[in-house]
Computed example of a mutant assay.
Amino acid sequence: MGDDAGAVRSAVLSLHRATGLPMVFGGALNGRDRLRITELVGNTTDSLSGLVVRQGNGLGGKAMATGRPGWVSDYPRAATISHDYDRPVGREGLLSIVAVPIVVRRQVRGVLYGALREPLSLADRVVTAAVQAARDLEQDLAVRDRADEAMVRYGGHAAPPGPGTEASATAAARWEEVRAVHAELRDLAERVRDPATRDRLREASLRLAAAGRLAPPAASGDPAPPAGPVLSPRELDVLSYVAIGCTNAEAAQRLGLLPETVKSYLRSAMRKLDSHTRLEAVSTARRAGLLP
């Protein structure tokens, strides 16, 4: 769950900036029915750092068990939760707490907390911000999971088959699916908010593209090949959809751009690739290892 912990860290920081709560913390699952609190902002002690919260226990454990947000305005006296963690919570002086589970594909992956050191009801905007932070994180984790699955399924492919190879039609169709996955990864990268997740998706798409590089690898001792053209992320996004047969209008719809914007990116990519047609640009990009 190391990657989940990093994503929780970003969500904790975002929630703290959005709400200004005195303390925000959270953790990812560390086993099937427990989580470890690893990310804290605004803490004055180490009492909660590394604390293992079991499903059903305390406010966070209840959120894990129900899959729904929960909050209390006076933690030590709350009758709706168990009090397994009163001592570490009391040492930190927390009284009003909200806990929101992070649920991806019906599985709890972690919990985000926000807290006050006063027995006050949390404002609706605070609870809403905590829920939204969890939802954003859920989307990022779901996107990352899809990228990981795509890499497992397609990341090990060699270059696409040439004509005349056995079962070439089937293999070619499968390779087109690889290219479709590559385009989807590029698109997903632009939709996530977490910079680390976005970079990981872009890296995954580059690995897929490199797997289909048409130029043969250099032999040991050969001079390094000259550096290829450098396309911007959006130029590569557009070209990846052109490569699977999309029109400018279709690429614009999938990428959430205006058709004229797509045309502009495509013209810029063609210029960098020294190409005069869309097909030539795609072929050049594949030879350069920019597209699968």
Rank of each mutant, 00 (worst) to 15 (best):
V262D: 00
D145L: 14
R146P: 02
A215N: 04
V104S: 00
R109Y: 11
R109I: 08
R34M: 03
G50V: 11
G50H: 14
R91T: 09
V126C: 07
R254I: 04
A147T: 06
P292L: 06
A11L: 06
E149T: 15
A215F: 13
N248R: 08
T44R: 13
G162C: 13
P217Q: 09
P101E: 05
G162P: 03
E176M: 14
T38N: 06
Y241M: 06
A130Y: 08
V52Q: 08
D4M: 08
P223Q: 11
L48D: 00
G256E: 05
A150L: 04
D194A: 02
A211Q: 05
Y85H: 07
Y75H: 10
R54G: 04
R125G: 05
A172T: 15
P119T: 12
A209C: 05
K62H: 15
A204K: 02
L201R: 01
A99R: 03
R191W: 07
T66V: 04
E176D: 10
G67A: 13
R17C: 14
R68G: 03
L116M: 05
R254K: 14
Q139D: 12
R125V: 13
G26Q: 00
L120Y: 11
S220A: 14
L21I: 04
S275G: 05
G155M: 07
L13P: 00
S96F: 13
L116W: 09
A142Q: 11
G245C: 05
P259Q: 07
A147M: 11
Y75S: 03
R198W: 04
K272F: 10
R135F: 11
T19Y: 02
L13W: 13
T80K: 09
T128L: 11
R9P: 03
I37L: 15
R234C: 03
E177I: 15
T44E: 09
R135V: 15
V98H: 00
R54P: 03
P101H: 04
A243S: 11
R109F: 08
R191N: 03
P22A: 12
V100L: 01
E203N: 07
V126F: 09
A130R: 01
Q107F: 12
G93P: 02
E149Q: 15
P88L: 06
R234F: 12
L141G: 01
E118F: 12
R77M: 11
T277L: 06
T247D: 09
L120N: 14
A63L: 03
D145Q: 15
H276K: 14
T170S: 09
T19E: 02
T197L: 03
G155K: 04
T128A: 14
P223S: 08
S14Y: 15
A211P: 03
G164E: 04
A150R: 02
